[in-house]
Design a protein around this nucleic acid. Sequence first.
DNA 1: TAAATAATGAACACTTTGTTCAGTAACTTA
DNA 2: TAAGTTACTGAACAAAGTGTTCATTATTTA
Lengths: 194, 194
Amino acid sequence: MPGVDRRQTKTRKAVFKAFVELLEEKGYPSITIQDIIDRADIGRSTFYSHFETKEDLLNVLCESIFDHAFSSIQQKESTHDFTGREDLEGELTHILYHLRDSKGYLKGIFASESGDVFMRYFKNNLRDVFEKDAGLSPKGIPEDYAVEHSVCWFAETARWWMDGDRVERYSPEEVVKFFWHYMRGAERALSDSF
Amino acid sequence: MPGVDRRQTKTRKAVFKAFVELLEEKGYPSITIQDIIDRADIGRSTFYSHFETKEDLLNVLCESIFDHAFSSIQQKESTHDFTGREDLEGELTHILYHLRDSKGYLKGIFASESGDVFMRYFKNNLRDVFEKDAGLSPKGIPEDYAVEHSVCWFAETARWWMDGDRVERYSPEEVVKFFWHYMRGAERALSDSF
DNA sequence: TAAATAATGAACACTTTGTTCAGTAACTTA
DNA sequence: TAAGTTACTGAACAAAGTGTTCATTATTTA
């Protein structure tokens, strides 16, 4: 009845667990596949039947995190052709909730050196979210620059939030408010001065 | 008369050249020391008498780039104990000039995947520049969040600028203006609304 | 020219990689 | 429950990279 063999799920889980632990302990670059299969306690050939390389594993991990966080947004995109300001605010809050939920899983990684790879993935997803919004970039400011500002600054905001105990101190709504005030302020000032 | 042996300078130059080329071609993670010594055409033991690891080499490269760009700022810091708005604007412009000058050397790297390592270094340096400015973070916004906004957004602005042919299309002054309008606008809006 | 310093290159044990394959265990379905 | 399929095991493999050592050669400086 179940679509996937229990054995596969078990190995994949073991690999992910080992990988995330190792990411925290020594950082992505110094992790070897040897480390992973030792920690996950699986055969060498088993690893290679699931993943091609260490990078492949990382990509799959990123997908499972971010595709989840962005899933409801993609659904919305198909029904509406323009996303209003309130919608966007809700979407961003939604993303932060997802990140917080997976925080136990990702504890410390986002902010660590390994975080760069996550950030790259994160930003690529965010670019789709903010690009729909691009039309309103102020005169005199290149459009791609404006998009990059939204994307980078939201990603960095999330990273800032995930570091230390900030995730416990500030709610997703608060964080979006921080972010949003910077955005709104910038837009206002720019449309004034150009 | 010269302080450093010509042979040393020659090897270091060859290593840096090879390294930068390889950074462009295959990206930092997949570069091996073997690649470097093959490309630089030096003996294995020679490499290890200059650098400890691949990472060490990267750090030395970063230092040579950014310490140069930030050098004149550090001098200023010792003479003034508070840096005015105009000073800061000048400093940022100065940094961009330096980055542009080393662009032939760094063509394509800063903005590429390998750029993450540079960005980390860059941001650490920038944090010192913007932290002096932290006092004026608006009420309701955490101070470290405000600093992070300046730091990240200037670093990402520089990265954006260094990508493609933008460095030829926009002058350092223009880019600082882009950046500055975003900053100024945000500050204005925030002090209004809190 | 002599002494000091740097680069060479070959050898070293060691780790990691990615692949193969026969054998074993766990699941599925008829 | 028996038969067939699918997944994991574990050992072995060549290939490539790492970091170190050392006697030899080349270059520089005084």
